[in-house]
């Protein structure tokens, strides 16, 4: 028992070190992910007035929707289906009201 517990503890310490290491690697890329641009095809289909909000939505989409699973293509669902799915995700992922609104706006413009 004692030897097992010791080996557990050392393995867990290794994990924490690993975690910090991967964390540092990732921090370098933080800005790039934040700057990820939305799909240019989608952007050509929308008016200028909406494009600002949608650029924000695209950024939030890229940041949030990858947190638990792969991102699905916006074109895979209709506007109405995205409304329902985003409602589902808002509850499941505790999205903020603003994230919900902007991401939905982006998906409707990009599908």
């Amino acid at each position: 028992m004692t030897t097992k517990t010791n080996s557990h503890t050392s393995i867990r310490i290794l994990f924490v070190v690993g975690l910090v290491w991967v964390g540092l690697l990732g921090c370098k890329t933080e800005q790039q992910i934040a700057d990820r641009q939305p799909d240019p095809v989608a952007m050509t289909q929308i008016g200028d007035e909406a494009s600002l909000a949608i650029t924000g939505g695209a950024k939030l989409w890229a940041q949030n929707c990858i947190r638990c699973h792969n991102i699905r293509n916006p074109a895979s669902l209709s506007d109405r289906q995205w409304e329902i799915v985003l409602h589902h995700m808002r509850v499941r992922a505790n999205l903020t009201a603003q994230e919900h609104e902007l991401i939905l706006e982006f998906l409707k413009a990009a599908n």
């Binding site: 975690l19 991967v22 690697l25 990732g26 370098k28 890329t29 933080e30 790039q32 947190r67």
Partner: peptide, 18 residues
């Protein structure tokens, strides 16, 4: 702890869960 990011340095998506 969850950490998900696309790293240029590693050339891909890292998904870490603890």
């Amino acid at each position: 702890v969850s950490y998900v990011t696309e790293s240029d340095l590693l050339g891909g998506l890292i998904d870490l869960r603890f």
